[in-house]
Simulated assay, not measured.
Amino acid sequence: MQFPPPVRLLSAAVLALTTLAGHAHGPTPQKIDESVTIAAPPAAVWAVVSNFADLAGWNPAVTASSADRGNEAGSTRTLTLPAGQVTEQLDDYDAAAMSMSYRSGTTDPKVLPASSYSGRLTVKPDGSGSKLGWQVRGYRADTGNDPAAGMDDESAVKALRALMRPGLDAVRARIESGGTR
């Protein structure tokens, strides 16, 4: 059966676009969801993690931290990590909901192999204790179709998780051992 010219043209266009889309997809966002259950009321957990500027005060993966406007939306936080510095910007801070969200600012891929990420830190009741959750969504440092070694999805997830997990575990250890600051 022979199709009329408009149908043949449309079929060829769909085939061409499908082929091009398969080669120009780019990276997909990586999702990292970490949490820890803490035997303490949510207010006690929030008291430790609520200061946007003080990530270094509770996260051993961060050697220093500061923020230009504290917990005000738009505040820029500078984190010093073992390999160098990155900046992040506070997007939303809700003390009543015990939640804050932020996004990456300046990130050197040699310091943190992620080109763009956003995160949310939350404290919620969990039984007689609390759940401290940290969710990050981000892209690898090399956003090309064939990322360089160390700048790929796996490297971005590994680096972000290495920033998150020690902090969550340190908060639980500190609070459950009776320390607050």
Rank of each mutant, 00 (worst) to 15 (best):
L81P: 07
R77H: 15
D92C: 01
L90T: 01
M100I: 11
V62Q: 03
D92S: 14
M100Q: 11
Q89D: 06
A73M: 03
A83W: 11
D68F: 01
V86A: 02
A64W: 09
A97M: 01
L79R: 01
S75M: 05
S75T: 03
D94N: 12
M100D: 11
L81C: 01
S101I: 08
N71S: 08
T87Q: 05
Y102V: 02
T63S: 07
G74Y: 13
Q89A: 09
A64N: 07
A97I: 12
Y93V: 04
T87V: 03
E72K: 00
N71L: 03
S75V: 09
S75W: 07
V62E: 09
D91H: 04
S99A: 11
D92Q: 14
Y93K: 00
R103G: 13
A97T: 04
S66A: 15
D92E: 15
A95T: 05
E88Y: 04
G70Q: 04
A83N: 11
A67K: 02
R69P: 03
V62Y: 04
L81Y: 04
Y102G: 00
M100G: 05
Q85H: 07
L79V: 09
T80D: 10
V62L: 03
A73E: 09
T80H: 10
S75K: 02
S99T: 15
Q85I: 09
A97S: 10
L81H: 04
T78C: 09
L79K: 02
Y93C: 01
D91E: 14
T63G: 02
S66L: 08
E88T: 02
S65I: 12
G70E: 05
A83V: 03
L79W: 13
T76Y: 06
R103Y: 14
G70W: 12
V86Q: 01
R103D: 14
S99K: 12
D68L: 01
P60S: 04
R103H: 15
A96R: 09
A83H: 07
E72W: 03
T78I: 14
V62W: 07
A96I: 09
Q85L: 02
P60I: 04
G74K: 04
N71I: 11
A67T: 13
G74L: 08
R103A: 14
D94A: 05
S75N: 05
Q89S: 08
Y93E: 05
R77E: 15
R77L: 14
E72Q: 12
T63W: 08
A64I: 07
L79T: 09
G84R: 00
A97E: 13
R69Y: 07
A97V: 09
D91T: 11
N71Y: 10
Q89N: 09
M100Y: 15
T76N: 02
E72T: 14
V86G: 02
T76L: 06
D68E: 05
T76E: 11
P82I: 03
Y93S: 00
Q89W: 09
L81E: 10
E72V: 14
T63D: 10
L81W: 07
D68K: 00
A97K: 06
T87A: 02
D92R: 13
T80M: 01
V86S: 07
E88P: 02
A96W: 11
A64S: 10
L90C: 01
P82S: 06
D92M: 01
T87R: 00
S75I: 08
Q89H: 10
R103S: 13
P82Y: 13
S66R: 10
V62A: 01
V62S: 03
